[in-house]
Design a protein around this nucleic acid. Structure first.
Lengths: 212, 212
DNA sequence: TAGAAATAGGGTGAAAATCCCCGTTTCCAG
DNA sequence: CTGGAAACGGGGATTTTCACCCTATTTCTA
């Protein structure tokens, strides 16, 4: 009997998923958490290590990404299956890089889900064809798109660009000259392969840099 | 024994939810559909009318809103509980206006969920405190925000405004003069209470007019 | 330790977006 | 049949954004 923990802020989904998991009768859900912080708390509190953690990416307070980072630092052997609504390529890559053993989209069918649990238990990982092809796509892609890393200041600017402020007032807010803002804009246009402020906004939303 | 149909494109969630529903043992899930079109097909095919439909809002091909519209026209007595991740006020209002008997956020806890099923069966509706307060908020709000209805052509323009095209090329695409586009822009700025194209994009995303 | 890279800033000019006020047609309701 | 929306188009002006040119620090690193 394998033990499972579920980390997801959608209670209805979490408890439903528990029923599904337990209908497989080789698995038992030992606890839920609604965000990473709570999960970490319960880990140490109960002193119970689940065999597999099913972890949502988008959660309030402490996201799946942040939680994976913590696990990587503190419990690197913990097996985690990421579970998410969206299949943003960047997110998938990031979670796997942080040590997730697989990435499940919520539209996976329950048979595949059971296989994922089994594979992670037995083989240590599970990759759906869709995720595998995302990985492959990412391999042979031109290096420019390979990995876009934004600096803190760039992210700060990007967030402000996703408001109705003018660049001038963004400059004020960041204590920079409008010309410097011009520089950030151009850098981001190039990095993100967009041509306008609208493109910046769309990028930011797609990559969860701003909330919607 | 009440019969339930689940309409949700997230298979994992749908099947999990089925387990949860059936753990209540007064309910039985008679079928799933992954979008509105499939649901309508199954309704007539099986000739089986579920007592309650649990319907997701965001689905490919035919959304929850479109499906509610169809039900309103064709099966106005069908009891529907809307089920959604997001609590965009406009969406809640719209679903209820189209005849949904309640609106459940996916972070509802299972006890409340069971109560929702029971209430809909017995009383015909279920409103959580959160949804109720949204409704109340909406009542006494200034009429300007009361109900924003966009015309087809405006929505068409709005979608194009959420791309990196210039207004000039949007005009071409809509077979209109750039000046007319100017008019649409200004109308929307006023209607949506925004001041820039960025505002349009943010509005469109928040109200699910475009996908992200 | 030279040179890349990151950071901050500047000038100019063109293109796009924004704003305000106006005219035409069409079409529907009172 | 008439008056008023609604859809479409326009003149003209300002502001904002965007593009492409450049320099001067600092910091990191090969």
């Amino acid at each position: 009997m394998k033990t499972i923990a579920i980390v997801d802020d959608h209670l209805l989904f979490a408890e439903s998923l528990q029923k599904l998991v337990e209908s497989f009768d080789e698995y038992k859900v030992i606890f839920h958490a609604t965000n990473g912080k709570q999960f970490i708390g319960q880990l140490s509190e109960d002193n119970s290590k689940p065999d597999i953690v099913l972890m949502d990416i988008n959660m309030p307070i402490m996201s799946g990404i942040e939680t994976m980072q913590w696990l990587k630092d503190n419990l690197p052997d913990q097996k985690v299956l990421a579970l998410s609504m969206d299949d943003s390529e960047a997110t998938i890559i990031q979670m796997l890089r942080l040590g997730a053993r697989g990435y499940l989209l919520k539209d996976i069918n329950p048979e595949d889900f059971e296989k994922a649990l089994k594979d992670v238990s037995d083989k240590g990982f599970y990759f759906s064809d869709r995720v595998t092809s995302t990985l492959l796509d990412n391999l042979d892609k031109d290096p420019s798109k390979q990995e876009i890393t934004l600096k803190d200041r760039e992210i700060e600017f990007l967030k402000l660009a996703c408001t109705e402020k003018t660049y001038k007032s963004i400059a004020d807010e960041m204590f920079l000259s409008p010309k410097t803002i011009d520089g950030y804009r151009e850098t981001l246009f190039e990095k993100l392969h967009v041509k306008s402020r609208i493109g910046l906004v769309l990028y930011a939303i797609k990559h969860n840099i701003i909330e919607v």
